[in-house]
């Protein structure tokens, strides 16, 4: 199968869906002439023009509000918020309008809206360009939250998100754009709300998502040489969470490590862990361990930044700990 980058996979997903459905259009900061801060929309403005790929002013709240207005009146907008760190600027529109409008109106409207953004540390960009804020978002009923880890999943999930009649926040990871993987030439979709076993194993389950899937797979590789068999569950979608797949794995391994890049306190891992306890407590042979981001603003220094997020060594250590 052909190998392409995560960035190219996302670009193909947008291109294919725009070609397929003329109601799909893109809006966001620097997405047209510039092609997106991380190049995901490169070439689309040249191909589809001003009416389909719209450069907006720096007005995040309006970007989301305008996308919502368009979504409930016949269009299928894909808005880009350049960094998830800027989501605070549009949290009112996202939380109070986008997520609630269908419910508040008694189901009498649909919101086919995608908000693409990217997050995560790794580029030494400091506290305003490196956050992992997915835990804020999974606390909002009415939206879906998707975080793909591979080019294959990125393309298939973005296409599904654009075809979904519900609002989807699609969070990419800045350190994954240049990663490569197999992506078929022919069309396919990856369903939202379905986790994926990225590696089978029998001793310990790692539950993770986004970039931490790659770190967890690396750790599993190392641990295998030491005779420890690790199963890596990639959630892919955080809301709704596919707890069934997680529970199935836990019932097999009886031990769980959660790996997440976001801050530990009140983080996504807390929700994952609690759902495991609610659904599979009797199958656990050891307390669940979290390997999570430090509860600090992301420091600039590359040395400190590395310490602020999980690494392969810490994941290996946690797996050994849970096996004690």
């Amino acid at each position: 199968m052909r190998i392409i980058t995560y960035r190219q996979a996302l670009n193909e997903a947008l291109d294919e869906e725009m070609a397929r459905d003329e109601r799909v259009f893109l809006l966001g900061e620097d997405i047209a002439i510039y092609g997106g801060a991380y190049g995901v929309t490169a070439g689309l403005w040249q191909k589809y023009g001003d009416q389909r790929v719209i450069d907006t002013p720096i007005s995040e709240n309006a970007i989301v509000g305008v996308a919502l207005g368009a979504a409930i009146t016949g269009m299928r907008p894909v808005a880009e918020i350049m960094y998830i760190d800027f989501i605070g600027l549009c949290m009112d529109q996202l939380n109070n309008q986008v997520a609630k409008i269908r419910y508040m109106f008694g189901g009498k409207c649909t919101v086919p809206l995608v908000i693409r953004t990217e997050g995560g540390a790794g580029r030494s960009l400091g506290a305003h360009h490196s956050q992992s804020l997915e835990a804020w978002l999974i606390h909002i009923p009415g939206i879906k939250v998707v975080m793909p880890s591979t080019p294959y999943d990125a393309k298939g999930l973005l296409k599904s998100a654009i075809r979904d009649d519900n609002p989807v926040v699609f969070i990419e990871h800045k350190m994954l754009y240049n990663t490569k993987g197999e992506v078929p030439e022919e069309e396919y979709l990856v369903p939202i709300g379905v986790a994926d076993i990225k590696r089978e194993g029998k001793d310990v389950t790692i539950v993770t998502y986004s970039r931490m899937v790659l770190f967890s797979l690396e750790a599993a590789e190392i641990l295998e040489k030491e005779g420890i068999s690790v199963e890596v569950v990639d959630l892919r979608t955080l809301l709704p969470m596919d707890i069934e797949t997680v529970v199935k794995s836990v019932k097999k391994t009886n031990r769980v490590v959660i790996v997440e890049e976001d801050c530990k306190t009140g983080g996504t891992g807390a929700e994952i862990g609690m759902q495991i306890i609610e659904n599979a407590f009797d199958y656990l042979d050891a307390p669940i361990i979290r390997v999570a981001g430090a509860d600090v603003p992301m420091p600039k220094s590359p040395v400190l930044e590395k310490l602020a997020i999980p690494d392969v060594e810490r994941i290996c250590k946690a797996v050994k700990e849970v096996l004690k």
């Binding site: 709240n61 509000g65 207005g69 009146t73 016949g74």
Partner: peptide
């Protein structure tokens, strides 16, 4: 925001 989006639509 919604009104402006409807206008764009």
């Amino acid at each position: 925001g919604i009104a402006t989006g409807a206008g764009l639509s």
